[in-house]
Structure formats: structure tokens, C-alpha cells
């Protein structure tokens, strides 16, 4: 009799087990079938796991209020500073597919410039959702970046507010008469200095800030030569903070052949900017423009 009861209980438990899995499958089916109906991902984003590759993208996702959803970043993602606690995947070529897979992300959002196309392809083949954003370095591009990420992550309202604020700050910036001629020097130590021609994000930033790029004749980044520097004769030289340090500050820069002969060298009009803030064309764009202008004007006085 007891054995019979035990068998019965066993049977019921077995049956319950099966029932549970049937209920599970049923629920899953309901959830899946419901998904297309929902067009707003607001609720889902609560525990969305994002891998963000590219400084401007990480910055914008954070500005949209989703900083805590970012689980991993690349080396260019330096703002906001709290991101430094996330998993660091490395820089472009050294990002490995396996590390990304290991993180169980729901979505990987990457700037086209910040990720290898072969990596994107292999991640997609393995069923990862990879969203690649090609950024346009202009005010329209900044709006587009914020809007695109807002839509993708279900934060349209927040994105709209960010864009309103961006446009307001941009409208408040007055145009400059007699554009000063600026030259951006990308330096990684004295042996490796490059100037930015047109087609670069640095060129776009100088133009949008009301400066004229003193290196109009070249495209992309080209090595700096003393004669080209003197011929360009810029009023102001712009450096990244990291590059400024690698050159040994203002005194080190004055020793670079050709610098002392330019207007910028004579007046020591050197400006340093944070690389990401200057070139990300994110919601911090107006802030970056004002910073450049203020530093330039302070040097003039």
C-alpha cells in the first residue's frame, strides 16, 4: 500500500515537471508573440545588457540615462568617468569576439570607426545583435546620433530633450567675425606629429567652432613638416591633452621646428582639449566649442 502511494506521488511529481515545462513553453510563446506589438522598449531596457564600442556612443548612451546598462566598453570610451569601472575590451584590433560572447550582452552597439568589419560579421554569424552606427561629424550628425540611439534603446523622450538642449546651446553660440586660422596637431611624442586636413573630424570641429582650418590643402591626417607649418601660419594650435603632455608642454612645443615662426608660436596661443569631448560630436558639442573659444580668447589677452 505504501509502495503504491509512493509510486503515485512519484507519478504526480513527474507529471508536474512535465506540466511546468509545458507551461514554460506556453509562456515563452506568449512573450515572443507579444514582442512585435510592443513598439516602445522602455520597459525592456531596465535590464538590457549593452556592450558599447566607441567613445561618442558610450557617452550618448550614458546621457540617455542608460549608463548602468553598459556592461563593457572599448578604450575610446572615457566619458563619463564612471565608465572606467566597466569591463575594458581594448582598442579596435585587439577586441576579441570570444570576450564579447562571454559577456552575454543583449546588444552590441559600435561606431563604424571603432570596430573591425570582420568582427561584426563573425559576431552576427554567431547570433549576436550588433548595431553599427556611422557617425557624421556635424551638428546634424550629433542630432542623428542621439535620435538613433534614443530610438534603438527606447528612450525617445530623453533623446528629444537632449536634442532640444543641444540645439538651444548651439543657437546661443554667436558666430565669429574674421575667423581665426587654427591648426590641429595630433601628437604621440615628438617623432609622431600629424596635422589634420579636410575630411577629418578635427577639421569639422574647427569649422563648426567658427575657426578656419589652416591646412586646407591636404586631406586626412598627414605628417607635420616645418615648412608646411610656416606656410600655413596658424593663429592658434590645438592639441589633445595627451598629446600636449607627450610633447612636454608649451616649452617643448616651442622647440618643434617651425612653431616659433608662426603667429601661434609668437603669441604662444596653444589650446589643449580633451580628445573625446572635442571629436565625439555628442551632446557635449556646444560645451567643447565654448571651451575652445574661451581658451583661445584667454590666450589672446
Amino acid at each position: 500500500m505504501r509502495i503504491f502511494a509512493l509510486c503515485l506521488i512519484r507519478l504526480i511529481i513527474n507529471y508536474m515537471d512535465r506540466l511546468r515545462s509545458i507551461i514554460g513553453i506556453f509562456l515563452l510563446a506568449v512573450i515572443i508573440s507579444c514582442q512585435p506589438v510592443k513598439d516602445n522598449r522602455q520597459e525592456e531596457t531596465e535590464d538590457l545588457r549593452i556592450i558599447s564600442i566607441g567613445g561618442a556612443i558610450s557617452e550618448t548612451i550614458s546621457a540617455l540615462g542608460l549608463e548602468h546598462n553598459i556592461i563593457a566598453i572599448d578604450q575610446t570610451s572615457t566619458y563619463p568617468p564612471a565608465l572606467s569601472e566597466k569591463v575594458q575590451l581594448g582598442f579596435r584590433n585587439s577586441i576579441s569576439a570570444e570576450s564579447i560572447l562571454a559577456l552575454n550582452a543583449d546588444i552590441i552597439i559600435a561606431g563604424k570607426e571603432n570596430i573591425e568589419s570582420t568582427l561584426v560579421e563573425s559576431l552576427r554569424q554567431m547570433g549576436q545583435e550588433v548595431y553599427v552606427i556611422e557617425q557624421n561629424f556635424s551638428l546634424t550628425g550629433s542630432h542623428a546620433l542621439i535620435a538613433e540611439l534614443g530610438k534603438l534603446l527606447g528612450r525617445q523622450e530623453k533623446a528629444y530633450a537632449l536634442r532640444e538642449a543641444l540645439q538651444e546651446s548651439m543657437d546661443a553660440i554667436s558666430p565669429i567675425e574674421n575667423k581665426p586660422r587654427a591648426l590641429f596637431i595630433y601628437a604621440r611624442g615628438k617623432g609622431a606629429m600629424q596635422v589634420s586636413g579636410h575630411g577629418t573630424s578635427a577639421h569639422a570641429f574647427m569649422e563648426i567652432s567658427g575657426f578656419e582650418n589652416a591646412m586646407q590643402s591636404i586631406s586626412q591626417f598627414k605628417p607635420l613638416t616645418p615648412e608646411a607649418l610656416i606656410a600655413a601660419d596658424p593663429d592658434v594650435l590645438i592639441f589633445f591633452e595627451s598629446g600636449w603632455q607627450s610633447l612636454g608642454g608649451a616649452d617643448g612645443i616651442m622647440e618643434i621646428p617651425g612653431i616659433a615662426q608662426t603667429k601661434a608660436g609668437k603669441t604662444r596661443n596653444f589650446v589643449t582639449m580633451d580628445g573625446l569631448k572635442m571629436l565625439s560630436f555628442s551632446s557635449r558639442l556646444p560645451e567643447a566649442i565654448l571651451e575652445l573659444r574661451n581658451k583661445y580668447n584667454n590666450n589672446l589677452q
Partner: peptide, 11 residues
């Protein structure tokens, strides 16, 4: 090269 500087990679 895959494991020395995890999660990144060395050439």
C-alpha cells in the same frame, strides 16, 4: 596571444 591580455588580444 588570445589569453595574455584578456579580454583583449595581442598580435
Amino acid at each position: 596571444s588570445r589569453t595574455w591580455v584578456q579580454p583583449a588580444e595581442l598580435p
